[in-house]
Design a protein around this nucleic acid. Structure first.
Lengths: 210, 210
DNA sequence: CTAAAAACTTACTATTTGGTCAACATTTAT
DNA sequence: ATAAATGTTGACCAAATAGTAAGTTTTTAG
Protein backbone atom coordinates (compact mmCIF):
# COMPACT_ATOMS: atom_id res chain seq x y z
CA UNK A 1 0.00 0.00 0.00
CA UNK A 2 2.48 2.65 1.14
CA UNK A 3 4.42 3.60 -1.92
CA UNK A 4 7.80 5.26 -2.11
CA UNK A 5 6.64 8.83 -2.60
CA UNK A 6 4.62 9.26 0.57
CA UNK A 7 7.05 7.67 2.98
CA UNK A 8 8.99 10.66 4.20
CA UNK A 9 9.37 13.53 1.74
CA UNK A 10 8.51 16.77 3.55
CA UNK A 11 5.40 18.69 2.71
CA UNK A 12 3.09 15.75 2.76
CA UNK A 13 2.24 15.67 6.42
CA UNK A 14 -1.30 16.06 5.22
CA UNK A 15 -1.14 13.04 2.91
CA UNK A 16 0.48 10.91 5.58
CA UNK A 17 -2.02 11.82 8.27
CA UNK A 18 -4.98 11.38 5.98
CA UNK A 19 -3.71 7.99 4.96
CA UNK A 20 -3.23 6.91 8.56
CA UNK A 21 -6.75 8.08 9.37
CA UNK A 22 -8.24 6.27 6.39
CA UNK A 23 -6.64 2.99 7.36
CA UNK A 24 -7.81 3.27 10.94
CA UNK A 25 -11.27 4.39 9.87
CA UNK A 26 -11.66 1.45 7.48
CA UNK A 27 -11.05 -1.00 10.28
CA UNK A 28 -13.41 0.78 12.63
CA UNK A 29 -16.18 1.01 10.05
CA UNK A 30 -15.92 -2.70 9.33
CA UNK A 31 -15.85 -3.68 12.98
CA UNK A 32 -18.49 -1.29 14.29
CA UNK A 33 -20.48 -0.09 11.29
CA UNK A 34 -20.99 3.52 10.27
CA UNK A 35 -22.82 4.66 13.37
CA UNK A 36 -20.89 2.40 15.71
CA UNK A 37 -17.50 3.70 14.64
CA UNK A 38 -16.88 6.84 16.69
CA UNK A 39 -14.51 9.62 15.78
CA UNK A 40 -12.79 8.87 19.06
CA UNK A 41 -12.33 5.18 18.24
CA UNK A 42 -10.87 6.10 14.86
CA UNK A 43 -8.57 8.56 16.59
CA UNK A 44 -7.43 5.96 19.11
CA UNK A 45 -6.70 3.44 16.37
CA UNK A 46 -4.82 6.04 14.32
CA UNK A 47 -3.01 7.17 17.46
CA UNK A 48 -3.99 10.78 16.92
CA UNK A 49 -6.09 13.15 19.03
CA UNK A 50 -9.71 13.36 18.02
CA UNK A 51 -9.48 17.04 17.16
CA UNK A 52 -6.72 16.24 14.72
CA UNK A 53 -8.97 13.83 12.86
CA UNK A 54 -11.56 16.57 12.51
CA UNK A 55 -8.90 18.96 11.32
CA UNK A 56 -8.26 16.74 8.29
CA UNK A 57 -11.84 15.64 7.71
CA UNK A 58 -14.71 18.07 8.26
CA UNK A 59 -16.90 15.40 9.83
CA UNK A 60 -17.53 11.68 10.20
CA UNK A 61 -19.55 11.46 7.01
CA UNK A 62 -16.57 12.85 5.09
CA UNK A 63 -14.26 10.26 6.58
CA UNK A 64 -16.62 7.54 5.48
CA UNK A 65 -16.93 9.02 1.99
CA UNK A 66 -13.15 9.08 1.70
CA UNK A 67 -12.97 5.46 2.83
CA UNK A 68 -15.58 4.46 0.26
CA UNK A 69 -13.78 6.30 -2.53
CA UNK A 70 -10.46 4.79 -1.56
CA UNK A 71 -12.05 1.37 -1.54
CA UNK A 72 -13.64 1.74 -4.95
CA UNK A 73 -10.43 3.07 -6.50
CA UNK A 74 -8.46 0.12 -5.23
CA UNK A 75 -11.10 -2.22 -6.43
CA UNK A 76 -11.14 -0.70 -9.85
CA UNK A 77 -7.38 -0.92 -10.26
CA UNK A 78 -7.26 -4.47 -8.98
CA UNK A 79 -9.91 -5.91 -11.26
CA UNK A 80 -8.32 -4.85 -14.49
CA UNK A 81 -10.09 -5.08 -17.79
CA UNK A 82 -11.20 -7.92 -20.00
CA UNK A 83 -9.46 -8.00 -23.34
CA UNK A 84 -12.07 -8.90 -25.99
CA UNK A 85 -9.45 -10.61 -28.12
CA UNK A 86 -8.43 -13.19 -25.55
CA UNK A 87 -11.60 -15.28 -25.63
CA UNK A 88 -13.94 -16.45 -22.87
CA UNK A 89 -11.64 -18.95 -21.19
CA UNK A 90 -8.80 -16.52 -20.53
CA UNK A 91 -11.25 -13.76 -19.65
CA UNK A 92 -12.97 -15.82 -16.97
CA UNK A 93 -9.67 -17.14 -15.66
CA UNK A 94 -8.25 -13.65 -15.31
CA UNK A 95 -11.40 -12.27 -13.76
CA UNK A 96 -11.61 -15.00 -11.13
CA UNK A 97 -7.92 -14.75 -10.39
CA UNK A 98 -8.03 -11.00 -9.88
CA UNK A 99 -11.15 -11.07 -7.73
CA UNK A 100 -9.98 -13.89 -5.47
CA UNK A 101 -6.64 -12.18 -4.90
CA UNK A 102 -8.43 -8.95 -4.07
CA UNK A 103 -10.61 -10.78 -1.57
CA UNK A 104 -7.67 -12.35 0.20
CA UNK A 105 -5.40 -9.30 0.07
CA UNK A 106 -7.90 -6.57 0.90
CA UNK A 107 -10.76 -8.21 2.76
CA UNK A 108 -11.59 -4.96 4.54
CA UNK A 109 -12.28 -3.15 1.29
CA UNK A 110 -14.64 -5.89 0.29
CA UNK A 111 -16.37 -5.86 3.65
CA UNK A 112 -16.93 -2.13 3.73
CA UNK A 113 -18.38 -2.24 0.26
CA UNK A 114 -20.60 -5.21 1.10
CA UNK A 115 -21.98 -3.52 4.21
CA UNK A 116 -22.69 -0.37 2.29
CA UNK A 117 -24.67 -2.29 -0.34
CA UNK A 118 -26.51 -4.46 2.18
CA UNK A 119 -27.67 -1.36 4.01
CA UNK A 120 -29.06 0.04 0.79
CA UNK A 121 -26.10 2.03 -0.55
CA UNK A 122 -27.26 5.01 1.47
CA UNK A 123 -23.91 6.76 1.23
CA UNK A 124 -22.87 5.63 -2.23
CA UNK A 125 -22.94 8.40 -4.79
CA UNK A 126 -24.95 8.04 -7.96
CA UNK A 127 -21.94 8.01 -10.28
CA UNK A 128 -20.53 4.94 -8.57
CA UNK A 129 -23.76 3.09 -9.18
CA UNK A 130 -24.13 3.96 -12.83
CA UNK A 131 -20.48 3.21 -13.35
CA UNK A 132 -21.06 -0.35 -12.24
CA UNK A 133 -24.10 -0.72 -14.43
CA UNK A 134 -22.01 0.32 -17.41
CA UNK A 135 -19.21 -2.02 -16.45
CA UNK A 136 -21.48 -5.06 -16.15
CA UNK A 137 -23.42 -4.21 -19.31
CA UNK A 138 -20.22 -3.88 -21.28
CA UNK A 139 -18.72 -7.14 -20.07
CA UNK A 140 -22.03 -8.94 -20.51
CA UNK A 141 -22.18 -7.86 -24.13
CA UNK A 142 -18.73 -9.36 -24.65
CA UNK A 143 -19.77 -12.69 -23.16
CA UNK A 144 -22.93 -12.64 -25.26
CA UNK A 145 -20.85 -12.34 -28.42
CA UNK A 146 -18.79 -15.32 -27.40
CA UNK A 147 -21.98 -17.24 -26.78
CA UNK A 148 -23.40 -16.23 -30.14
CA UNK A 149 -20.14 -17.37 -31.77
CA UNK A 150 -20.52 -20.74 -30.10
CA UNK A 151 -17.36 -20.19 -28.09
CA UNK A 152 -19.05 -21.00 -24.79
CA UNK A 153 -22.30 -22.45 -23.42
CA UNK A 154 -25.45 -20.38 -23.45
CA UNK A 155 -25.44 -19.02 -19.90
CA UNK A 156 -26.88 -15.63 -18.97
CA UNK A 157 -23.83 -13.33 -18.94
CA UNK A 158 -25.16 -10.93 -16.31
CA UNK A 159 -25.91 -13.74 -13.89
CA UNK A 160 -22.53 -15.25 -14.70
CA UNK A 161 -20.88 -12.03 -13.60
CA UNK A 162 -22.97 -12.05 -10.42
CA UNK A 163 -21.87 -15.62 -9.76
CA UNK A 164 -18.19 -14.84 -10.13
CA UNK A 165 -18.61 -11.67 -8.12
CA UNK A 166 -20.38 -13.36 -5.22
CA UNK A 167 -18.39 -16.56 -5.03
CA UNK A 168 -15.06 -14.72 -4.99
CA UNK A 169 -16.10 -11.91 -2.66
CA UNK A 170 -17.47 -14.49 -0.26
CA UNK A 171 -13.97 -15.39 0.92
CA UNK A 172 -13.45 -11.83 2.10
CA UNK A 173 -16.87 -10.98 3.48
CA UNK A 174 -17.57 -14.30 5.17
CA UNK A 175 -14.00 -14.86 6.29
CA UNK A 176 -15.18 -15.34 9.88
CA UNK A 177 -17.68 -18.02 8.95
CA UNK A 178 -15.36 -19.80 6.55
CA UNK A 179 -12.56 -19.95 9.10
CA UNK A 180 -14.98 -21.23 11.73
CA UNK A 181 -16.22 -23.96 9.41
CA UNK A 182 -12.71 -24.91 8.39
CA UNK A 183 -11.75 -24.79 12.08
CA UNK A 184 -8.84 -22.49 11.42
CA UNK A 185 -7.58 -19.23 12.91
CA UNK A 186 -6.37 -17.63 9.68
CA UNK A 187 -6.13 -18.13 5.97
CA UNK A 188 -2.84 -19.56 4.76
CA UNK A 189 -0.71 -19.03 1.67
CA UNK A 190 -2.09 -21.99 -0.23
CA UNK A 191 -5.71 -21.06 0.30
CA UNK A 192 -5.68 -18.42 -2.42
CA UNK A 193 -4.50 -20.91 -5.03
CA UNK A 194 -6.88 -23.61 -3.83
CA UNK A 195 -9.83 -21.26 -4.16
CA UNK A 196 -8.72 -19.95 -7.56
CA UNK A 197 -8.32 -23.48 -8.84
CA UNK A 198 -11.62 -24.66 -7.46
CA UNK A 199 -13.65 -21.74 -8.79
CA UNK A 200 -11.91 -21.60 -12.16
CA UNK A 201 -12.34 -25.33 -12.66
CA UNK A 202 -16.01 -25.42 -11.73
CA UNK A 203 -17.07 -22.25 -13.47
CA UNK A 204 -15.19 -22.98 -16.69
CA UNK A 205 -16.79 -26.41 -16.83
CA UNK A 206 -20.13 -24.78 -16.02
CA UNK A 207 -19.64 -22.53 -19.03
CA UNK A 208 -18.78 -25.45 -21.27
CA UNK A 209 -15.15 -24.41 -21.50
CA UNK A 210 -13.52 -27.61 -20.25
CA UNK B 1 -45.28 -15.02 8.47
CA UNK B 2 -48.23 -14.47 10.81
CA UNK B 3 -49.73 -17.86 11.37
CA UNK B 4 -53.25 -18.66 12.52
CA UNK B 5 -52.58 -19.11 16.21
CA UNK B 6 -51.14 -15.72 17.00
CA UNK B 7 -53.63 -13.59 15.07
CA UNK B 8 -56.17 -12.79 17.76
CA UNK B 9 -56.57 -15.41 20.48
CA UNK B 10 -56.55 -13.63 23.84
CA UNK B 11 -53.70 -14.10 26.25
CA UNK B 12 -50.96 -13.63 23.74
CA UNK B 13 -50.59 -9.90 23.82
CA UNK B 14 -47.04 -10.63 24.75
CA UNK B 15 -46.41 -12.84 21.74
CA UNK B 16 -48.03 -10.38 19.39
CA UNK B 17 -46.12 -7.39 20.71
CA UNK B 18 -42.83 -9.23 20.72
CA UNK B 19 -43.42 -10.33 17.17
CA UNK B 20 -44.24 -6.80 16.05
CA UNK B 21 -41.09 -5.54 17.75
CA UNK B 22 -38.95 -8.23 16.16
CA UNK B 23 -40.18 -7.37 12.69
CA UNK B 24 -39.57 -3.68 13.19
CA UNK B 25 -36.20 -4.30 14.78
CA UNK B 26 -35.06 -6.51 11.91
CA UNK B 27 -35.69 -3.74 9.44
CA UNK B 28 -33.98 -1.15 11.58
CA UNK B 29 -30.93 -3.32 12.19
CA UNK B 30 -30.55 -3.94 8.47
CA UNK B 31 -31.00 -0.30 7.55
CA UNK B 32 -28.94 1.27 10.32
CA UNK B 33 -26.74 -1.46 11.75
CA UNK B 34 -26.63 -2.52 15.39
CA UNK B 35 -25.45 0.77 16.83
CA UNK B 36 -27.35 2.89 14.34
CA UNK B 37 -30.70 1.30 15.10
CA UNK B 38 -32.05 3.13 18.14
CA UNK B 39 -34.66 1.81 20.52
CA UNK B 40 -36.71 4.85 19.57
CA UNK B 41 -36.51 4.10 15.84
CA UNK B 42 -37.57 0.53 16.49
CA UNK B 43 -40.44 1.82 18.61
CA UNK B 44 -41.54 4.23 15.89
CA UNK B 45 -41.48 1.52 13.26
CA UNK B 46 -43.40 -0.87 15.51
CA UNK B 47 -45.80 1.94 16.42
CA UNK B 48 -45.27 1.43 20.12
CA UNK B 49 -43.87 3.73 22.79
CA UNK B 50 -40.19 3.25 23.50
CA UNK B 51 -40.77 2.20 27.11
CA UNK B 52 -43.05 -0.54 25.88
CA UNK B 53 -40.23 -1.98 23.81
CA UNK B 54 -38.05 -2.05 26.90
CA UNK B 55 -40.85 -3.66 28.84
CA UNK B 56 -40.73 -6.66 26.53
CA UNK B 57 -36.99 -6.73 25.97
CA UNK B 58 -34.62 -5.85 28.79
CA UNK B 59 -32.28 -3.92 26.49
CA UNK B 60 -31.17 -3.37 22.91
CA UNK B 61 -28.71 -6.25 22.98
CA UNK B 62 -31.56 -8.59 23.88
CA UNK B 63 -33.67 -7.35 20.99
CA UNK B 64 -30.79 -8.01 18.65
CA UNK B 65 -30.22 -11.48 20.09
CA UNK B 66 -33.87 -12.29 19.59
CA UNK B 67 -33.70 -11.07 16.00
CA UNK B 68 -30.63 -13.21 15.36
CA UNK B 69 -32.25 -16.29 16.87
CA UNK B 70 -35.43 -15.74 14.92
CA UNK B 71 -33.37 -15.37 11.75
CA UNK B 72 -31.38 -18.54 12.30
CA UNK B 73 -34.49 -20.56 13.12
CA UNK B 74 -36.19 -19.47 9.92
CA UNK B 75 -33.10 -20.21 7.97
CA UNK B 76 -32.77 -23.65 9.45
CA UNK B 77 -36.36 -24.58 8.66
CA UNK B 78 -36.17 -23.18 5.16
CA UNK B 79 -33.05 -25.02 4.06
CA UNK B 80 -34.26 -28.48 4.81
CA UNK B 81 -32.03 -31.50 4.77
CA UNK B 82 -30.22 -33.42 2.09
CA UNK B 83 -31.44 -36.97 1.70
CA UNK B 84 -28.39 -39.19 1.15
CA UNK B 85 -30.38 -41.60 -0.98
CA UNK B 86 -31.39 -39.09 -3.63
CA UNK B 87 -27.98 -38.64 -5.25
CA UNK B 88 -25.92 -35.54 -6.00
CA UNK B 89 -28.07 -34.10 -8.78
CA UNK B 90 -31.29 -33.96 -6.77
CA UNK B 91 -29.40 -32.84 -3.68
CA UNK B 92 -27.83 -29.86 -5.42
CA UNK B 93 -31.07 -28.98 -7.17
CA UNK B 94 -32.98 -28.97 -3.91
CA UNK B 95 -30.32 -27.05 -2.07
CA UNK B 96 -30.11 -24.30 -4.70
CA UNK B 97 -33.88 -24.11 -4.97
CA UNK B 98 -34.36 -23.73 -1.23
CA UNK B 99 -31.61 -21.18 -0.81
CA UNK B 100 -32.68 -18.99 -3.72
CA UNK B 101 -36.26 -18.95 -2.51
CA UNK B 102 -35.09 -18.01 0.97
CA UNK B 103 -33.06 -15.17 -0.49
CA UNK B 104 -35.99 -13.77 -2.43
CA UNK B 105 -38.61 -14.33 0.25
CA UNK B 106 -36.68 -13.25 3.32
CA UNK B 107 -33.90 -10.95 2.17
CA UNK B 108 -33.81 -9.20 5.52
CA UNK B 109 -32.93 -12.38 7.35
CA UNK B 110 -30.07 -12.95 4.96
CA UNK B 111 -28.87 -9.37 5.31
CA UNK B 112 -28.86 -9.36 9.08
CA UNK B 113 -26.92 -12.57 9.11
CA UNK B 114 -24.46 -11.32 6.51
CA UNK B 115 -23.77 -8.13 8.44
CA UNK B 116 -23.25 -10.05 11.63
CA UNK B 117 -20.68 -12.29 9.96
CA UNK B 118 -18.92 -9.46 8.14
CA UNK B 119 -18.48 -7.62 11.40
CA UNK B 120 -16.86 -10.67 12.93
CA UNK B 121 -19.86 -12.47 14.45
CA UNK B 122 -19.43 -10.43 17.63
CA UNK B 123 -22.93 -11.19 18.86
CA UNK B 124 -23.28 -14.72 17.53
CA UNK B 125 -23.23 -17.35 20.22
CA UNK B 126 -20.76 -20.19 20.11
CA UNK B 127 -23.36 -22.91 19.61
CA UNK B 128 -24.55 -21.31 16.39
CA UNK B 129 -21.03 -21.38 15.01
CA UNK B 130 -20.27 -24.97 15.86
CA UNK B 131 -23.68 -25.97 14.57
CA UNK B 132 -22.75 -24.65 11.16
CA UNK B 133 -19.41 -26.38 11.19
CA UNK B 134 -21.16 -29.67 11.85
CA UNK B 135 -23.73 -29.02 9.14
CA UNK B 136 -21.12 -28.29 6.49
CA UNK B 137 -18.87 -31.18 7.53
CA UNK B 138 -21.78 -33.59 7.37
CA UNK B 139 -22.96 -32.46 3.94
CA UNK B 140 -19.41 -32.37 2.62
CA UNK B 141 -18.90 -35.98 3.65
CA UNK B 142 -21.98 -36.90 1.66
CA UNK B 143 -20.69 -35.16 -1.45
CA UNK B 144 -17.32 -36.82 -0.99
CA UNK B 145 -18.93 -40.23 -1.06
CA UNK B 146 -20.71 -39.40 -4.29
CA UNK B 147 -17.39 -38.26 -5.73
CA UNK B 148 -15.65 -41.44 -4.58
CA UNK B 149 -18.45 -43.44 -6.21
CA UNK B 150 -17.84 -41.59 -9.45
CA UNK B 151 -21.32 -40.09 -9.34
CA UNK B 152 -20.01 -36.54 -9.80
CA UNK B 153 -16.84 -34.69 -10.77
CA UNK B 154 -14.02 -34.34 -8.25
CA UNK B 155 -14.74 -30.90 -6.84
CA UNK B 156 -13.94 -29.91 -3.26
CA UNK B 157 -17.24 -30.41 -1.43
CA UNK B 158 -16.67 -27.71 1.19
CA UNK B 159 -15.90 -25.10 -1.43
CA UNK B 160 -18.87 -26.31 -3.44
CA UNK B 161 -21.09 -25.58 -0.46
CA UNK B 162 -19.51 -22.15 -0.12
CA UNK B 163 -20.17 -21.50 -3.79
CA UNK B 164 -23.83 -22.40 -3.57
CA UNK B 165 -24.15 -20.48 -0.34
CA UNK B 166 -22.62 -17.30 -1.69
CA UNK B 167 -24.13 -17.28 -5.14
CA UNK B 168 -27.66 -17.78 -3.81
CA UNK B 169 -27.36 -15.44 -0.84
CA UNK B 170 -26.02 -12.77 -3.16
CA UNK B 171 -29.49 -12.06 -4.52
CA UNK B 172 -30.66 -11.10 -1.05
CA UNK B 173 -27.63 -9.29 0.30
CA UNK B 174 -26.72 -7.39 -2.85
CA UNK B 175 -30.32 -6.76 -3.89
CA UNK B 176 -29.60 -3.04 -4.13
CA UNK B 177 -26.65 -3.50 -6.45
CA UNK B 178 -28.32 -6.12 -8.58
CA UNK B 179 -31.40 -4.00 -9.09
CA UNK B 180 -29.24 -1.00 -9.97
CA UNK B 181 -27.32 -3.02 -12.52
CA UNK B 182 -30.49 -4.49 -14.00
CA UNK B 183 -31.97 -0.99 -13.94
CA UNK B 184 -35.05 -2.12 -12.10
CA UNK B 185 -36.94 -0.95 -9.04
CA UNK B 186 -37.89 -4.38 -7.68
CA UNK B 187 -37.50 -8.06 -8.26
CA UNK B 188 -40.35 -9.65 -10.19
CA UNK B 189 -42.08 -13.01 -10.03
CA UNK B 190 -40.03 -14.62 -12.80
CA UNK B 191 -36.69 -13.62 -11.35
CA UNK B 192 -36.69 -16.41 -8.78
CA UNK B 193 -37.13 -19.06 -11.45
CA UNK B 194 -34.59 -17.44 -13.75
CA UNK B 195 -31.98 -17.44 -11.03
CA UNK B 196 -32.76 -21.00 -9.94
CA UNK B 197 -32.48 -22.20 -13.52
CA UNK B 198 -29.28 -20.33 -14.18
CA UNK B 199 -27.51 -21.46 -11.03
CA UNK B 200 -28.73 -25.05 -11.21
CA UNK B 201 -27.71 -25.33 -14.84
CA UNK B 202 -24.25 -23.88 -14.38
CA UNK B 203 -23.41 -25.60 -11.12
CA UNK B 204 -24.68 -29.01 -12.17
CA UNK B 205 -22.61 -28.77 -15.33
CA UNK B 206 -19.70 -27.57 -13.23
CA UNK B 207 -20.04 -30.71 -11.14
CA UNK B 208 -20.15 -32.92 -14.20
CA UNK B 209 -23.81 -33.72 -13.68
CA UNK B 210 -25.16 -32.59 -17.05
C1' DC C 1 -67.60 -8.15 40.41
C1' DT C 2 -63.08 -7.82 42.17
C1' DA C 3 -58.40 -8.25 43.03
C1' DA C 4 -54.19 -9.64 41.20
C1' DA C 5 -51.32 -9.78 37.18
C1' DA C 6 -49.92 -7.95 33.00
C1' DA C 7 -49.51 -4.18 30.00
C1' DC C 8 -48.59 0.49 29.20
C1' DT C 9 -46.80 5.19 29.74
C1' DT C 10 -44.66 9.66 31.25
C1' DA C 11 -40.92 11.92 33.01
C1' DC C 12 -36.38 11.75 34.07
C1' DT C 13 -31.15 10.75 34.21
C1' DA C 14 -26.43 9.58 33.22
C1' DT C 15 -23.55 8.95 29.49
C1' DT C 16 -21.86 9.18 24.99
C1' DT C 17 -20.81 11.54 20.91
C1' DG C 18 -20.06 14.77 16.91
C1' DG C 19 -18.41 18.86 16.38
C1' DT C 20 -16.39 23.74 17.69
C1' DC C 21 -13.06 26.93 19.35
C1' DA C 22 -9.26 29.38 20.63
C1' DA C 23 -4.68 28.88 21.97
C1' DC C 24 -0.28 26.87 20.94
C1' DA C 25 3.51 24.61 17.99
C1' DT C 26 5.82 23.54 13.89
C1' DT C 27 6.95 23.92 9.11
C1' DT C 28 7.65 26.48 4.94
C1' DA C 29 8.88 30.08 1.82
C1' DT C 30 11.16 34.42 1.22
C1' DA D 1 15.44 35.43 10.39
C1' DT D 2 10.74 36.03 10.24
C1' DA D 3 6.06 35.95 9.18
C1' DA D 4 2.59 33.43 7.16
C1' DA D 5 0.66 28.97 6.61
C1' DT D 6 -0.07 24.69 8.27
C1' DG D 7 -0.58 21.49 11.84
C1' DT D 8 -1.83 20.12 16.83
C1' DT D 9 -4.47 19.92 20.89
C1' DG D 10 -7.30 20.31 25.40
C1' DA D 11 -11.52 22.08 26.94
C1' DC D 12 -16.01 22.56 26.08
C1' DC D 13 -21.08 22.06 24.52
C1' DA D 14 -25.55 20.72 22.67
C1' DA D 15 -27.97 16.85 21.06
C1' DA D 16 -29.00 12.12 21.14
C1' DT D 17 -29.62 7.88 23.43
C1' DA D 18 -30.07 3.61 26.54
C1' DG D 19 -32.11 2.61 30.31
C1' DT D 20 -34.94 3.46 34.90
C1' DA D 21 -38.50 4.52 38.12
C1' DA D 22 -42.86 4.93 39.48
C1' DG D 23 -47.20 5.48 38.41
C1' DT D 24 -51.75 4.40 35.64
C1' DT D 25 -54.66 1.49 32.83
C1' DT D 26 -56.16 -2.82 30.92
C1' DT D 27 -56.71 -7.72 31.01
C1' DT D 28 -57.45 -12.02 33.23
C1' DA D 29 -58.97 -15.41 36.50
C1' DG D 30 -61.91 -16.79 40.24
Amino acid sequence: MTTLAQTKKTGNIRAQSQHKILIAASTEFVLQGYKGATVQSIADRAELPKANILYYFKNKENIYQAVLEHTLEMWDEGIGDIDPSEGPKAAIEKFIDAKVRMSFNYPEASKIYAMEIIQGAQHLKEFARTYQRKWVREKAKLFQQWIDNGEMANVDPVHLIFLIWSSTQHYADFETQILTIMNRADYEEDDVETVINFLTDLILRGCGLK
